[in-house]
Design a binder for these strands. Structure first.
Length: 555
RNA sequence: UGGGGUGUAGCCAAGGGGUAAGGCAACGGGUUUUGAUCCCGUGAUUCGCAGGUUCGAAUCCUGCCACCCCAGCCA
């Protein structure tokens, strides 16, 4: 495999990598990294970053590190680490031996900090957090220098050593870079590099009580690992000058380059770890992997194939423009994948009994059905047909509108893979509610028999009343009503509809968790991961089929 | 009113002086024993706006406008 060196049509990041390569930078290496903080679950936005970083590494024959950015022990935990690894693997990417943690470099960070101190580029500030905050200035006014800014190198060294050895309380001292309190870019106004945190770290336990902040730890980690292109989101654009400053003032083995791209926003969803965890904590969803969540684990449980998520990220592209992608875009990727690879099955969501009066009382006939209309390799299965069947309640209308191609009084319809039936009588209870439909069937119209030239406009799905299995169906729609939700306050009340006693063809009785099917004419469904075999089957609706009839009805 | 960014169709997105790719959506039509899939067709006299340079500008220059981000000892 060789590197595709044409820049045409590629996103701006790949174009600049190509240009760096053509200039002979980084000994022709391309190293990237995906650096999640283990303080929550990965979501669709992370998926884009994962696809970008691992995609680039593989296209350029480089490597991509999975680096846990674990510099804040008060917010992080090892539980998230496992979930994150699982999600990356499931998405189809592998870090191989390049699994690292910022905490692997704590000693290096400390030495780098000492180097800054020795060179007079950093100092210990003994102001309180409030004092630091109020002397930082504002967007329009410069900040004021700390009274501790000109401590001697020796004093700073001593203080920093004492910070490390645990002599101070949290907040008593911090290490600050000595840059420029009047810089227009606030990140350059003597940013804090290290703070004291008497907290147990998930990996280094009680070994440290000082922890580096993002800008310092992230930059040095990139340089240590030899990352050539450090890709992050737009909000870090302002931090790039600090990133460069750190690289400029330290002796490091490599010189990474930071490039920023816009984050992926999806309509009707929220991708903020804070808000997602709020949904979880308030019990508004089942958990991080609730099928309505935009988390990778949620989408996995919902039944979205990993390949569909990758395809979606690829179609959406990488730019610096703020984007808000329509759900239809994601659903398109999901449907495309599922249409190709899902075996078909018949399932009646809301059963309505149909009795075929002229069909022999105890006869059960086996009908052959293709598992996929185009892919013969997916084989066939057998469907039992008998006198009593269930059809979808909304496939019958007593007084239908024009162009209703389904069952109506006196009308005919084809049963998928079966016969043409005609509605002879509608049986109702005292309230006028429909109890069952009586039909006749035409024995000469059996599917595939070739004896019938007759055609009817409509074909509906069905299930044999005695030979079917009952299941619970969970029908999902967006969690939030607003297209661009700002908070989790406008929850969609109908984001989950639970349907009990749906009637499925009996072949589905032994489906296993994770198995995906297209229920013909209704949608794609997956067996929920908690669905127990032998007990009630639970299916999650992944996505509906496109429905031009429903669309017609609306207009 | 400081600094950093971004503006091409409803949503994404190519295009980087030679006369607006593609995808999603929408809308028409065809095929169909899934109103699915599939196939065909329909959109920008114009690229945030206004000037300028040029034979020629979405692309270069100037000015303006709109929107986003930044004042954590979070990442």
């Amino acid at each position: 495999m060789t590197i595709d060196a044409t820049a045409k049509g590629k996103d701006f990041i790949r174009q600049s990598i190509l240009s760096d390569l053509s200039e002979g930078k980084n000994e022709s290496r391309v190293f990237t990294r995906f650096p999640p903080e283990p303080n929550g679950y990965l979501h669709i936005g992370h998926a884009q970053s994962i696809c970008l970083n691992y995609g680039i590494a593989s296209e350029f024959q480089g490597r991509c590190y999975l680096r846990f950015d674990d510099t804040n022990p008060t917010k992080e935990s090892e539980d998230y680490v496992d979930a994150i690894k699982q999600d990356v693997l499931w998405l189809g990417f592998n870090w191989q031996e390049h699994l690292t943690h910022a905490s692997d470099y704590f000693e290096d960070f400390y030495n780098c900090a000492m180097q800054l101190i020795e060179d007079g580029n950093a100092y210990i500030d003994s102001q309180t957090a409030d004092e630091i905050k109020s002397s930082r200035g504002t967007l329009n006014a410069p900040g004021a220098e700390s009274p501790y800014r000109n401590r001697s190198v020796a004093e700073n060294q001593g203080l920093f050593e004492r910070m490390r050895s645990g002599e101070f309380e949290e907040g008593e001292n911090v290490l600050r870079a000595k840059i420029d309190m009047s810089a227009a870019n606030i990140n350059l106004r003597d940013p804090v590099l290290y703070r004291i945190l008497h907290a147990e770290h998930q990996r280094t336990a009680g070994q440290w009580c000082i922890y580096p902040l993002y800008d310092f730890a992230h930059t040095v980690s990139d340089a240590i690992e030899g990352i050539t292109h450090s890709l992050c989101t737009l909000e870090f654009e302002d931090h790039r000058p600090l990133y460069e400053w750190i690289l400029d003032h330290l002796t490091l083995p490599h010189r990474p380059r930071q490039i920023e791209f816009s984050r992926l926003n999806l309509e009707h969803t929220i991708t903020s770890k804070r808000k997602l965890s709020e949904l979880v904590e308030k019990g508004l969803v089942e958990g991080w992997n609730d099928p309505r969540m935009p988390t990778i684990s949620g989408m996995r449980r919902r039944g979205y194939p990993a390949s569909a998520i990758r395809d979606f990220c690829k179609r959406v592209g990488v730019t610096k423009k703020e984007k808000s992608i329509q759900i239809a875009q994601l659903e398109n990727s999901v449907r495309q994948e599922l249409d190709n690879n899902s075996p078909r099955a018949m399932a009646v969501i809301k059963p309505l009994k149909v009795v075929i009066d002229n069909y022999p009382e105890d006869q059960i006939e086996s009908l052959a059905a293709n598992n996929h209309p185009k892919n013969q390799a997916m084989g066939t299965r057998t469907l039992p047909f008998s006198k009593e069947i269930y059809i979808e309640e909304n496939d019958f209308m007593e007084d239908p509108p024009a162009k209703f191609f389904r069952l109506k009084p006196g009308g005919e319809v084809r049963l998928r893979f079966g016969y043409i039936i005609k509605c002879e009588e509608v049986i109702k209870d005292n309230n006028g509610d429909i109890l069952e439909i009586h039909c006749s069937y035409d024995p000469d119209t059996k599917s595939g028999s070739g004896t019938s030239k007759r055609k009817v406009k409509g074909t509906i799905h069905w299930v044999s009343a005695k030979q079917c299995v009952s299941a619970t169906l969970r029908l999902y729609s967006t969690l939030l009503s607003a297209a661009n939700p700002k908070s989790i306050s406008d929850l969609n009340e109908e984001s989950l509809t639970v349907v009990k006693n749906a009637a499925l063809e009996e072949n589905l009785a032994h489906a296993s968790p994770g198995d995906r099917f297209q229920f013909e004419r209704t949608g794609y469904f997956v067996v929920d991961e908690n669905s127990l075999q032998g007990e009630e089957l639970v299916f999650n609706r992944i996505v509906t089929l496109r429905d031009s009839w429903a669309k017609m009805q609306k207009t």
